[in-house]
Design a protein around this nucleic acid. Structure first.
Length: 495
RNA sequence: GCCGGGGUAGCAUAGUGGUUAUGCGGCGGCCUGCAGAGCCGUUUCACGGGGGUUCGAAUCCCCCUCCCGGCUCCA
């Protein structure tokens, strides 16, 4: 039986929801076999929270899936290390550090946190501060072409000059004036029109600055993503991602700047994640209603958390609940057990006719898994099929014993593919664990000893061995044909 | 105010016209020295309310209602 997948065929059916068209579209990159993707990264002035984590995890799955589909993926994700506001200035005083130190601290934390969740590094993580020259050049083009103008406190982009303004978010320039949010009327900037946005801001006292033809200052927030994405990916590229809050104004303004400057279509597919909610409402820094990722990992375990973040489709709001993580941990446990038992099966010479049925089932579910991901990255459904496979392996082993090695070999191929896409780097780190020969010998010895104690009816001593093994992260289970064991790194610790 | 997304059995999450939804929890059973895990049964023929289209609607259309998000800090 052949488990290999016709990648070309699967790839043809990959569809994603494009915010630009507000519709699900078949994915077809600009250049055949190559995908260029830019994901909006973090403003590194604080630790990342579980909302950021969801977003980056989803894009991690996207990138891994694209690679699985055979695409050569070039992924760029920026680091915004320029953001300065009064809150930050206050923080500098509180933490008694310089702006540079603050940025360094949280940039380091950002990479640690990403890695802890098994998120792969992008090909390039450009820093905004190192691309000020590119931003200045882009602003000069916009001035030359008449899309931008110089005011007293900076350079602004004139949104009324750009015909398609609002095509991503659906916001009409006039609506910005009529907006009843109460924020726009309090406009304190020296610009021609309320909807116009800053390309360059002249520095006020105490603020960090860079030199420019328009005076000492810093770039506006949006220009960095235009400058850096076009530098590394070209004037037109395939995918641009972000959280839903980026749609307006950030991405809308990026489109305006970039397309005004180049005259070309900036991005083909815009993908956005919905927010993580806490108690039914959006997390908010100002009200301290948020959960930092590193705290959540410490409490729930990275693997459980990662699966939980993927358990709701990315275009649906995720209301963060502990109970959901508990459910996710059960799926992680089953998968871990299934993977490790299958790995052990590889080394056993066992014949079992029913195993062929098991393999057929796994192949069918693996195809379902791919269909689910093809359907706008439906991780909810994909995880369900992954769990079906875990259960089928466990059930098989519990009633039939280990899987014949030639069958196990094929099943492992499927488990590896699924595991790497869903769990990322955590798959090898926490799930597909293979003990050293010595360690294995030790465990097997303990199990044998326990067995003898059990035969003699010395259950107390036998249970003590089980308890000790469990403390080492070894789970053992007595099945009909004997005792199986596996390494469990992702226990859900509860208070 | 404008724009968008939702309301699915105790809880959560799938499902865009027609077959017994899935997981978790509860209860009962099988298995077991115990535990764990798994399996079977049950809670359960569920889709916010009203109207319409249709042979047939959770799914399409209209109205109402409640919740959430966006409307220049934001993933």
């Amino acid at each position: 039986m052949d488990v290999s997948v016709d990648i070309e065929k699967v790839r043809e059916n990959f569809r994603v929801y494009n915010t630009l068209s507000k519709d699900i579209e078949r994915f077809e990159p600009i250049e055949k076999n190559k995908v260029r993707i830019y994901s909006c990264g973090l403003t590194v002035n604080d630790y990342m929270h579980i909302g950021h984590a969801r977003t980056y995890t989803v894009w991690d799955v996207l990138v891994r899936y694209l690679r699985f589909l055979g695409y050569e993926v070039f992924h760029v994700s920026n680091i915004t290390d320029i953001s300065i506001d009064e809150k930050i200035l206050k923080r500098l005083e509180e933490e008694k550090i310089s702006f540079q130190q603050l940025i360094e601290k949280y940039t380091k934390a950002y990479f640690e946190d990403r890695e802890a969740l098994g998120i792969e590094r992008a090909n390039v993580h450009p820093l905004a501060t190192q691309h000020v020259q590119e931003m200045i050049e882009l602003i000069e083009i916009l001035l030359k072409k008449g899309y931008a103008y110089i005011a007293e406190d900076g350079v602004y982009f004139s949104i009324r000059k750009f015909q398609n303004y609002g095509k991503l978010s659906g916001i009409k320039p006039e609506a910005l004036v009529a907006g009843a949010s109460g924020r726009i009327s309090k406009d304190e900037y020296d610009k021609d029109y309320v909807g116009d946005f800053a390309l360059w801001k002249i520095a006020k006292e105490k603020e960090p600055y860079w030199y420019s033809p328009w005076g000492k200052g810093r770039p506006g927030w949006h220009i960095e993503c235009s400058a850096m994405s076009m530098k590394y990916l070209g004037e037109s590229f395939d995918i641009h991602t972000g959280g839903e809050d980026n749609i307006f104004p950030h991405h809308e303004n990026e489109i305006a700047q970039s397309e005004a400057a180049t005259g070309k279509k900036f991005v083909k597919y815009w993908l956005h994640t919905k927010h993580v909610l806490l108690g039914g409402e959006k997390m908010s820094k100002s009200y301290k209603r948020l959960i930092y990722l590193r705290d959540a990992i410490a409490k729930y375990g990275a693997t459980n958390l990662r699966l939980y973040l993927l358990s709701t489709h990315y275009r649906k709001k995720l209301n963060f609940e502990e109970k959901g993580i508990e459910e996710a941990s059960l799926i992680v446990n089953r998968f871990t057990k299934a993977v490790q038992i299958t790995l052990k099966s590889l080394r056993k010479e066992i014949k079992n006719k029913n195993a062929q049925e098991l393999l057929s089932y796994c192949i069918a579910k693996f195809n379902n898994f791919l269909d689910a991901l093809n359907d706008d990255l439906n991780t909810t459904a994909a995880i369900k099929y992954l769990d079906d496979i875990s259960r089928s392996i466990i059930t098989f082993v519990e009633s039939n014993g280990f899987v014949p090695s030639e069958i196990a070999e094929n099943i492992i191929y499927i488990l590896d593919k699924m595991g790497e896409i869903i769990f990322g780097d955590l798959y090898k780190r926490e799930i597909r664990l293979e003990p050293t020969a010595e360690f294995e010998e030790f465990i097997e010895h303990m199990i044998k000893e326990r067995d003898e104690l059990r035969k003699e009816g010395k259950y107390e001593s036998a249970d003590k061995i089980r308890e000790n093994l469990r403390r080492m992260g070894i789970e053992i289970e007595d099945l009909r044909f004997g005792t199986i064991w596996y390494i469990k790194k992702n226990s859900l610790y509860r208070k």
